[in-house]
Design a protein around this nucleic acid. Structure first.
Lengths: 197, 197
DNA sequence: TGTACATCAGTGAACGCGCGTTCACTGATGTAC
DNA sequence: TGTACATCAGTGAACGCGCGTTCACTGATGTAC
């Protein structure tokens, strides 16, 4: 193994991901350019293709990272809430999700913009991260709705995630129903509290 | 007024909107091409620019139409439900929204794809149609939550719309949480029923 | 340790092409007198 | 009704340019002997 070369290669890969991440968050996915990226990384455009199959591949790497960060943020938000009622824990998680989305709007949007674009199945890491996220939610939800069977519980998990996602999505959108962040939190709480009785 | 010319112009405008609509629904917004459009309409590419400022303008016209259709479909779904409990009426409306989205996925997505694109304020018709849609929801919601004041009621209306939108959005997405349509309906009902007690 | 050779990261100019938009021109329709 | 003129919808070839991707080449790093 060419260890020195390999190391450089891995470093470049990492650098490119980080720069792309910063640029996406600053200007949005649609403004990401191979040339800009290479310029900032101090390498040639062609070098990108030594490390990634194409730009899409690079964006997927950024998205994977973002997804992981969301999972971590949501997981972290639950620390120290073990004793609390499940509904409160759901609200805490939702607010962590909102917080991440609000503080990284463009990065968060890139997550969905790319998936829209290529039609096919989601990559493995995507499904895996989603599974983890749902697993986090499943705990409190099953406590809350002990009367539901596994199948219905799964639907409920998805339904709740989708609802919160929808509130965050439209809440953070300036045009359709853009709303101050405090109001978004209140909407989430309103809905979840009612659902959890 | 050059009545004959004006009529032709108006006709072309209408034709183009209809063809664009069909093409968007068939292939998605991102596959819409000025040349294809002109080809199918039997006019020159340049003619498009006689009738619309640019392609974006044309797509906005299609979106306006779509938005109106959604409003109509939702409104129509309420016919004959006057006596029913408010929660049932909310579910009926939500299912009408789901039905439209499911039967016109790409058209429905175009609604949001374009808005993402241009950053600025939404056009007037957009806000107006949204207002109408919310007004439809506001009726049952205020019956259901008579204890809330106007401000909180408005938030609740938005929250409920956003939740249903989120469930439909992720439900219709093949990758993230694509789910058979019956399940989407069940998720909506599950959530709304719980909220409405 | 030294020499010859192989590999492959890295280069960046050039390719290619998709596609919205323009613009000089034509001809039909309408108006003035 | 007829003639001259103006308007403007309609034409489509050509422009322009943005931008991802390629590819022939270079040179550093590593391996074989």
């Amino acid at each position: 193994m060419a260890s020195k070369a390999d190391k450089r290669k891995a470093e470049l890969r990492q650098t490119l991901i980080e720069i792309a991440e910063r640029r996406i968050e600053a200007k949005g996915l649609s403004s990401l350019r191979a040339r800009d990226l290479a310029g900032e990384a101090g390498c040639a455009v062609g070098a990108i293709y030594n490390v990634f199959a194409d730009m899409n591949d690079l964006v997927m790497a950024v998205n994977g990272r973002t997804f992981r960060k969301i999972g971590e943020a949501v997981g972290r938000s639950l620390e120290g809430t073990e004793g609390q009622p499940p509904i409160d824990r759901l609200i805490v998680m939702s607010n962590a999700y909102l917080a991440f989305a609000a503080e990284n709007v463009l990065l968060w949007r890139a997550l969905f913009d790319i998936d829209m674009a290529d039609d096919g199945t989601a990559p493995d890491w995507y499904m895996e991260e989603l599974r983890k996220l749902f697993a986090n939610i499943a705990g409190p939800v099953s406590e809350l709705f002990s009367e539901l069977d596994a199948k219905e519980l799964e639907l409920m998990v998805r339904a709740l995630f989708s609802s919160v996602h929808g509130i965050v999505l439209l809440g953070l959108q300036n045009r359709i129903s853009g709303v101050p962040r405090g109001n978004i939190e209140r909407m989430i709480a309103q809905v979840l509290r009612r659902i959890g009785n």
